[in-house]
């Protein structure tokens, strides 16, 4: 399925299939999927559990590999990379936002956000500047020394978003980013994702069950049993 914007695709899936094995039972998850996501697009993936939406997220972020087909992200064919190169690819191109935040509990907000920068060549002063900048973007400048247990769910997710963008990746993958949040916090997080997309040009691929979250996307893809069944394009919010 082509990118409807006509812009250069940052993600291209060609004939991608994915099959899992549960003991001796073969479980097909994706079947011959073609998909383009344009650079700067905000894409929402919807569908029932087991429809393959999270698998697409895993494939484009390089933490899983397809059974068949090609996954090209930011011009890189992920199938050609070994584990070390995939790790470097993720560090450079992908920012992860999880449903349950997945912050390291023994680290402060600052230290959590700093983690991806430890893999770069930045010195301590530069890392500090980057971390404070992104904590400012997500509105948590004054909470940098707080531990995750001292933050609300919404604040934790904002720290997670700061961690996702601190190394300036081109792609943000968000797996149910508002799934654990109350309505007010969910709105704040969706506003933030929209802003990152609009103002900072981040491509966002978001899995969600929430139609209100999907409304923020440029395009909503519905999956069922590993097949794209519907594509809805919205005007840019």
């Amino acid at each position: 399925m082509d990118s409807p914007t006509g812009a250069r695709p940052i993600i291209a899936l060609r004939g991608v299939s994915k099959t899992y094995w549960r003991d001796t039972i073969e479980v097909p998850v994706l079947a011959q999927l073609d998909l383009d996501v344009a650079d700067g697009e905000f894409l929402a993936l919807m569908g029932p559990s087991g429809s393959g939406k999270s698998t697409i997220l895993n494939l484009v972020s390089g933490i899983d590999s397809p059974t068949a087909g090609r996954v090209v992200v930011a011009g890189v064919d992920l199938g050609s990379l070994d584990q070390a190169a995939l790790a470097a690819f993720r560090a450079r191109h992908v920012g992860f936002i999880f449903q349950s935040y997945n912050l390291i509990p023994v680290l402060t907000a600052f230290q959590n956000v700093e983690l991806p920068l430890l893999l770069t060549g930045l010195d301590r002063r530069q890392r500090k500047q980057h971390v404070l900048d992104v904590l400012g973007i997500v509105g948590l400048h004054g909470r940098s020394e707080h531990y995750p247990r001292q933050l609300s769910g919404g604040q934790e997710q904002r720290v997670a978003i700061a961690r996702a963008i601190v190394s300036d990746p081109s792609l943000l993958v968000a797996d149910e980013p508002t799934g654990d949040l109350d309505a007010a916090s969910a709105t704040e997080i969706l506003d933030l994702l929209g802003r990152l997309n609009r103002e900072f040009g981040k491509t966002v691929v978001m899995v969600t069950h929430d139609p209100r979250a999907a409304e923020r996307a440029h395009r909503v893809l519905h999956l069922d049993k590993g097949v794209l069944v519907e594509s809805v394009r919205r005007d840019r919010p």
């Binding site: 560090a91 992860f96 991806p116 893999l119």
Partner: peptide
């Protein structure tokens, strides 16, 4: 286990 998975997702390679 989950934390290690998150670190690897963030780009920490096996050696690190």
């Amino acid at each position: 286990t989950r934390e290690i998975a998150v670190l690897k997702a963030l780009g920490f390679n096996d050696r690190t």
